[in-house]
């Protein structure tokens, strides 16, 4: 239990919130609402999955919001140019890998602290995009863009499935594959990992490329939910993703954390807004409550730790 204290705290906060909603506004638990929530938050979950890798390595990436915007516009422009959707997807992911690789070089090769390197990337990408598009939307997309041309039900299914597949593959990767274990090793102690024969720089570089690829993929599936691509997508996405990961118990210093925790964190943050609306809470309080819930989740972890210590003490 001690190991997963934070994950449990996040899950407990989520359960408490859902229980409150179940008592006061049971209509929240409808299949339609579940479907919409899953679909709306699938892209954020994909980004949070990538962010878990980055934070586990002891790094951070605050440029994902800007990467998301660049990838969205790239998807729109390429689709409009007449590329078939699979080719668009491939091109967008490559574009994401390229952006991630820039971060990777800055952090792994040149040893620039990740928060600084990605802060620079964040403003550079966002402002370059604004400069290039002047905020214009990509409109008049071909018919096969929205829902990949498959219709709402099938398209939505594919998006949620894609998010879940990526999530499951990531769990496998982190838990069972040497490259994934290396992420933990580097995050726990870069020096020890190096002595054990792991190249920390390669792992760090790879993690940022992976982050870029997942961000681009998230942008792609998000864009495919609509018929137009706005010029300024993903503002604040980085904070959302980081919040989901850290609320879900991943240590910001790296080396400790689970994807299950990230799922709990992402679910908690995804549910707060709609749940408050169902509870009839004035939207003016939403942001304040969101902050309070994050802080409460942190404090509950401490309370859990206390209880545990008391229990240990009593059993001695």
């Amino acid at each position: 239990m001690n190991r997963y204290r934070r994950e449990i705290a996040a899950a407990a906060a989520l359960a408490a919130l859902l229980a409150t909603v179940a008592l006061i506004a049971p209509s929240f638990f409808s299949p339609a609402n579940a479907r919409d929530l899953a679909l709306n938050n699938a892209p954020a979950l994909i980004v949070a999955t990538g962010m878990t890798f980055v934070i586990l390595t002891g790094q951070i990436d605050i440029s994902v919001g800007s990467q998301f915007a660049v990838a969205s516009i790239t998807a729109g422009v390429l689709a409009k140019a007449g590329l078939p959707m699979p080719a668009v997807a491939a091109a967008v992911v490559i574009c994401g890998c390229a952006m991630g690789a820039v971060n990777g070089v800055l952090v792994a090769r040149w040893r620039i602290p990740s928060i600084v390197a990605t802060l620079a990337m964040m403003v550079v990408l966002r402002d370059a995009l604004r400069w290039a598009t002047e905020g214009a939307w990509v409109q008049n997309l071909p018919r096969n863009f929205q829902w990949f041309g498959l219709g709402q039900t099938a398209g939505g299914f594919i998006i949620v499935l894609a998010a879940l597949l990526i999530f499951a593959a990531s769990i496998f990767l982190l838990g069972r594959v040497a490259a994934g274990r290396a992420v933990y090793a580097v995050g726990a102690s870069s020096e020890a990992a190096r002595l054990a024969g792991i190249d920390p720089r390669r792992v760090t570089f790879g993690v940022f490329v992976w982050m870029g690829a997942l961000t681009a993929l998230a942008a792609f599936v998000n864009a495919a939910r609509f018929a137009e691509v706005p010029g300024n997508a993903g503002v604040g996405l980085e904070l959302k993703a980081i919040a989901a990961v850290v609320v879900g118990g991943t240590a910001i210093t790296g080396g400790r954390g689970t994807l299950a925790g990230t799922l709990a964190g992402a679910a908690l943050l995804a549910v707060i807004g709609p749940a408050l609306a169902f509870l009839g809470v004035n939207p003016y309080w939403e942001k304040a409550l969101q902050g309070a819930i994050i802080l409460a989740a942190l404090l509950s972890e401490i309370a859990l730790g206390r209880m545990q210590r008391h229990a240990q003490f009593a059993s001695r």
Partner: peptide, 9 residues
């Protein structure tokens, strides 16, 4: 990050 939301909210 939490108080960032809390204060603005």
């Amino acid at each position: 990050l939490g108080s960032f939301s809390l204060f603005r909210g």
